[in-house]
Simulated scan of single mutants.
Amino acid sequence: MSLFHLSSLAEIAAAEWDALLPDDQPFLRHAFLLTLEESGSVRAENGWQPDHLLWRENGRLRAALPGYRKRNSWGEYVFDHAWADACQRAGIAYYPKWLGAIPFSPVTGARLLGSAEAAAALLAALPEALGQHGLSGAHINFTTPQDNDLLQQQPDWLARLGVQYHWHNRGYRDFQDFLDSLMSRKRKQLRKEREQVTGSGFTFDWYRGDALREDQWDFVYTCYASTYAVRGQHPYLTRDFFSLLAARMPHAIRVVIASLQGQPAAMAFYLRDSTTLYGRYWGCLAEFDRLHFETCFYQGMAFAIAEGLQRFDAGAQGEHKLVRGFEPRLTHSWHYLCHEGLRAAVADFLQQERAGVRAWADEARASLPYRRGD
């Protein structure tokens, strides 16, 4: 029984990796993770050095954990910058660290792949491996309830809570059926926002991943990159990522392009599986009032209804989603810190933070726009 490290998903066959997956969520698939690497979106130079963990028994792959050695905390969406800053002031090395996550994708999903028994053995072997490789700790983000059960049985792992906002399809016949479930004032607000956009002349076209031409992918990337440019940042993903993923996983990709007078003006990039639509990236060539809400929220909700999907995860953060029917959902991450003093300090902080997060989630649920009793 042994713990193995992979410096690239190319070192393992896709069929062997994908055989461990519990569902069809696209972010976990070998093709998705390998595309991040081969497109240059994930690499040691930008702080994401692939270091995937495998657990083998008698040569047979029994468990796996996608992971990376990190020299910064960018692109994780579970924010530990304050911990890193405290370590720097105290003369404690916080980087490099090890992270079990899907890069740039704050989406809850399986992290401990394979049998529960083998995954527990992998976790038990991880602390020793951290010391051998000079890593300050391990962090596993956006875990499932099954992962949480395994992690809470391991000593010294610290639990952290966060909040996202997801929309649930309660068997709506169409978008109007959803609107009818809202309080009158909120229903009028959403209808007014949609009418404002369509009244300005915008039209919307949906495409599967293999239906877009390369010049259209150029447009998608230009819009995506612009959302970072306005903040003075470089985009995480490269242009090659989009074309490579479209070739490898076209069935999982959906893109909606908003056009004005026949000219593309904005886009939203989605991924999907059999139950859920995931809103990932958005961008526009100019600012248009309410266009973001229509392209990223209402179009996605209407698509989920039409396709019979159960849930729409439109991305991290965004309390403005509450008034549009997105409900608070607790997210989980886990943290193992080798330095005992740091571990004790973070444990105290997380205990207080968890109480605050739960209180906020309860308050947010009370402000949802649904008619009482629905």
Rank of each mutant, 00 (worst) to 15 (best):
D174R: 00
L123Y: 07
T35K: 05
A211S: 06
G75T: 13
Q152W: 06
F349I: 04
D240C: 02
S41D: 07
L161A: 10
A14G: 14
L190N: 01
G315S: 11
A110S: 08
S181W: 11
F27D: 09
G341D: 12
V220F: 02
W157E: 09
M301C: 03
G100W: 02
A14L: 10
N58T: 10
G356P: 08
A93K: 12
L21C: 12
A10H: 07
W360I: 02
E117W: 00
A124K: 01
E319L: 08
F4M: 08
L36V: 06
A124H: 06
L271P: 10
R71K: 15
L113M: 05
P106D: 09
A10W: 03
A84R: 03
N46D: 04
L151T: 06
C296T: 15
P369D: 00
A119N: 04
K186S: 01
S200P: 00
A314W: 04
D205E: 15
L182S: 04
E353G: 01
Q176F: 10
L190F: 02
G232F: 10
R56P: 06
L260D: 06
A13H: 02
W48V: 01
Y236Q: 08
D218C: 00
P127E: 06
W360C: 05
R254K: 13
A266L: 03
F4H: 03
A316D: 02
R62C: 12
A347I: 02
F204D: 02
L330V: 06
G373N: 10
E353D: 10
W167K: 08
A110E: 11
P66H: 02
L179R: 03
A64H: 00
Q310W: 00
G199C: 07
L33F: 08
L122V: 07
A118L: 00
R62S: 08
D80H: 09
V255H: 07
F326E: 12
R365M: 07
N169M: 07
E353A: 07
R329F: 07
E195Q: 15
L291I: 13
A258W: 00
V220C: 10
L61K: 02
L245C: 09
